[in-house]
Amino acid sequence: MSEVDCNVVLERLWVFLDGEADEALYRELEAHIEACLHCRNHVDFERRLRAVIQVKCKGEQAPLALRAALDRLLSGSQ
């Protein structure tokens, strides 16, 4: 059983948040985070920050001209 402390969580936090930790590591990190208020606060902050970034930067609507160009491409090719 390896030692997961706050520093290990900090080192592996992107990998954890990105869902890229292998299962054993993920479980160890998760167990520490659940038990540690300090790490839980931090994880919560990074998750909410990412959600804000997504809300603010996604959701552009493709212009109608682009949809029309796609239609033309498909109807123009025999």
Binding site: E60, A62, P63, L66, L70, S77
Partner: peptide, 28 residues
Amino acid sequence: DHPHVTVSDEDRARFEALVAGHLDGLYS
């Protein structure tokens, strides 16, 4: 001048479904 001279309606429909669904994401 399009290389797909014998493209089928089925190809077209498949392509349209694939691209149209990702158009907003690609544009963002």
